[in-house]
Amino acid sequence: MVVAFAIIRMKDLFAVVMLLGIYGLLSASFFVAMDAVDVAFTEAAVGAGISTLLMLVVITMTGRTEKVTRHKPLLALLVIAITGALLIYGTLDMPYYGSADAPIHHHVAPRYINDSMQEVGIPNIVTSVLASYRAFDTFGEVVVIFTAGIGVLALLSVARRPEDSEDITALDDSMHEQNLVLRIITKILIPFILLFALYVQFHGDFGPGGGFQAGVIFAAAIILYAMIFGLSNARKVINQDFIQLITAVGVLFYGCVGLVSLFNGGNFFDYNVLSSDPIAGQHLGILLIEWGVGCTVASVMIIIFFNFAGRREMQKINNNNNNQESSS
């Protein structure tokens, strides 16, 4: 609460981003305390990591302090107070936290908990619910992420003109000899992070993890490389067209798994018909769609970061050109 209040009241946006990082971490700690491991995993990776990084890139373009508001937004405050009071009144009727006769513990959840091992055969119930029982919802989530990536591309895509490439390399803001320690440590760490992303991807059946978290970790490794070694080097390593292709391929892969199960005679996303044995079919189906999810999430995060940072470079180049024109 203190952190949220401080976020609203402070005018220095940089400090606000720091406090947002702390807030994301506190949420992850709450999820850990409530014994929800996968959610804590995703919150720690996304909420405290990638969001902070992306907000930082935005802040370097917009400036550090917030604009002073001229009027006091009393009407908005009143609306929010009334809505909050109504919501709290609505929760007074809810059953206690974790009580045994709450409705959610009666209808669908016991069936998942009891039957998941026989029907799907993997120990992690969260993954089995996400990827097999509710695969269609997860398909919706992946399409939402894909749409967010397309939105960023449509709004911010920087058309790279080839004659500006010398300007870009002259403006190359990688940290060269000034930061030898950091470059060496990064070179040691990046293969480890990529390997860990693959571990989380394929271990999602047995422990916390799965496609979403693995994609975020993979993108974090690429973003680290881009930050230390410069955006132009990172663009040479990871071609932007290839990444855009991977985004679409991830979603298509997911949909094709559903279609293949349709062709084989089952329902849409019914994995039992994917192979000779239903349990093996479930395993294969979950593996394939988690791979699709991981591809899409990783490539969308990389696209968003490259576009934000590329925009910032364009702004810097324009500033430099303006300074040179005004001084010459």
């Binding site: 320690v181 950091l182 440590i185």
Partner: peptide, 13 residues
């Protein structure tokens, strides 16, 4: 052990 001292170094620099 690898990351802690690096962060201090980069922050001070």
């Amino acid at each position: 052990l690898l990351v802690g001292p690096t962060t201090s170094h980069v922050l001070a620099k």
